Amino acid sequence: MTHHSAEHRDPAINECIDNCQQCHAICLETINYCLTKGGKHADPQHIALMAVCADICATSADAMLRGSQVHSVICGACAEVCRRCAESCASMGDDAEMQRCVDICRRCADSCQRMAA
């Protein structure tokens, strides 16, 4: 039986898990922020994209934690969703909360892209 605890995993995988878990949390927090702010921030497509991003980040982290061989497929999709989410958040203008989401989405996209390769 293969043991998949953190100390036995590739450090790059651990980093990607951390990024996915952080991105999941920050997307959820940013959804709350956007709904409170209203206007263009509360646009249904923007909210939906952040929600899907949170979901796929959680799924991606879970797949890596489980040591599943399909994690590369999920990570590839996660990278694409994170990139789109970063673009959507960046389009909201100069806003520290949105920038926080942009930064983690880009970081997560980069690490997921490496896992998918």
Rank of each mutant, 00 (worst) to 15 (best):
T2R: 13
T2P: 10
T2V: 09
H4D: 03
H4F: 11
S5L: 02
E7P: 00
H8S: 05
R9A: 01
R9Y: 02
A12E: 15
A12V: 06
A12G: 11
I13T: 15
I13P: 03
E15V: 01
E15Q: 12
C16K: 04
C16R: 01
I17V: 14
I17C: 11
D18G: 03
N19P: 00
N19S: 12
Q21E: 14
Q21V: 13
Q21F: 09
Q22H: 09
C23V: 02
C23W: 02
A25F: 01
A25H: 08
I26C: 01
L28I: 05
I31T: 09
I31D: 06
Y33T: 06
C34S: 15
L35I: 08
T36S: 15
T36M: 10
T36Y: 08
T36W: 03
K37E: 07
K37Y: 01
G38Y: 12
G39M: 06
G39Y: 07
K40S: 12
A42I: 05
A42Q: 05
A42W: 07
A42H: 13
D43Y: 13
P44W: 03
Q45R: 15
Q45T: 13
I47N: 11
A48Q: 15
A48R: 15
A48T: 10
M50T: 06
C53W: 05
D55Y: 00
I56K: 01
I56G: 05
A58W: 09
T59L: 11
T59G: 14
T59I: 04
T59Q: 13
D62E: 08
A63M: 03
A63W: 04
M64Q: 10
L65M: 07
L65G: 01
L65Q: 10
L65E: 12
R66P: 00
R66H: 10
R66A: 10
R66G: 01
R66V: 00
S68T: 06
S68Q: 07
S68D: 07
S72C: 06
S72Y: 11
S72N: 14
V73K: 11
V73A: 08
I74L: 15
I74R: 09
I74Y: 06
C75Q: 05
C75D: 08
A77I: 03
A77H: 14
C78M: 02
A79T: 05
A79P: 05
V81H: 04
V81R: 10
R83Y: 08
R84G: 14
R84H: 15
C85T: 15
C85F: 07
A86W: 05
A86Y: 06
A86V: 10
S91Q: 06
S91W: 01
M92R: 08
G93W: 13
D95W: 12
A96R: 14
M98G: 03
Q99A: 01
R100T: 10
C101S: 14
D103K: 12
I104H: 00
C105M: 11
C105S: 07
R106E: 12
R106N: 14
R107K: 11
C108N: 04
C108S: 11
C108H: 04
C108R: 04
A109H: 11
A109R: 11
D110W: 06
S111E: 02
S111R: 13
C112F: 02
C112Y: 02
Q113A: 13
Q113S: 12
R114N: 04
M115H: 00
M115S: 01
A117Q: 13
A117G: 13
